[in-house]
């Protein structure tokens, strides 16, 4: 059997609508280290446990999701080594078992590290990366909001198209939009060339432009410049940088 996990020094934040205060602090002992990581067992009688229920939470879908699982702590409970009920021991962070991906904050240029937690194709959480040499696990209010930037009811999930002079959006398929757009680019480019004086054959397009790049990825910037300038000959390619 593996040893019970070394829990945080003061409290173990469990499932988001519960918070369990661990005993060693109350009991005034030196805690997990001295007790070999199983301090809870010995101090059972002096434990005062507090259960905090988040506002609005109660018996409901979340409670139903509490299933017994074989965690080290749960095993310890089964063996009678821990003073917790099975239900308590089964509680765990919603991040348990999630896939962790290393991300970079999409806001300013500090470049804070983020940990992105996903499970079953769903984004669960985004937190600060504790090992990151600049941010050391911290995020500012915007960086901490990165989760809501992705999981957000206002996000666009389909192409919206506004015809000339129309007063409403229409939803269109991706392929349709790409095809139509390619035609528009070609028509505008060809029309400009056709209007140029005889003998002018340089690959320079002045009536189409592009703006943006500082908030997307480097490789995307490279592709924009390569296609629009190196390929199509578009001159006005710009981004947020000016100095």
């Amino acid at each position: 059997m593996s040893a019970p996990p070394a829990v945080g020094p003061e409290r173990c934040s469990g499932h988001w609508d519960f918070e369990i205060e661990l005993p060693e602090r109350r009991s005034g002992t030196t805690g997990a280290k001295e007790a070999g990581g199983v301090s809870m067992r010995a101090r059972a009688s002096s434990t005062s446990m507090r259960r905090l229920v988040a506002p609005g939470a109660g018996p409901g879908p979340r409670a139903a999701s509490l299933v017994w699982s074989t965690t080290p702590l749960a095993e310890a409970v089964l063996m009678g080594q821990e003073p917790y009920s099975r239900q308590t021991a089964a509680k765990h962070s919603r991040l348990r078992g999630a896939t962790v991906t290393e991300g970079v904050c999409p806001y300013c240029a500090v470049g804070c590290g983020q940990l992105i937690y996903t499970k079953g194709g769903q984004l669960l959480d985004i937190e600060g990366h504790p090992d990151h040499p600049v941010s050391e696990g911290t995020l500012c209010p915007k960086g901490a909001n990165a989760f809501q930037l992705a999981v957000n009811p206002h996000r666009l999930t389909t192409v919206r198209y506004r015809a000339p002079y129309a007063d409403h959006w229409e939803t269109r398929p991706l392929d349709w939009a790409l095809d139509r757009l390619a035609e528009r680019v070609k028509a505008t480019r060809d029309a400009e060339f056709a209007a140029q004086p005889e003998g002018r054959e340089d690959n320079a397009v002045r009536t189409i432009g592009s703006l943006g790049g500082a908030t997307i990825d480097n490789e995307e910037n490279y592709l924009i410049k390569k296609l629009l300038s190196g390929g199509l000959g578009i001159l006005s390619i710009e981004n947020q940088a000016r100095i």
Partner: peptide, 21 residues
């Protein structure tokens, strides 16, 4: 102290009209 996540990169890779990468 720049203000966008890759404003340095977008300048380096040149989504700018007067500069190549």
């Amino acid at each position: 102290m720049r203000g966008h996540s890759t404003i340095q990169g977008s300048t380096d890779l040149a989504t700018l009209y007067d500069s190549l990468p």
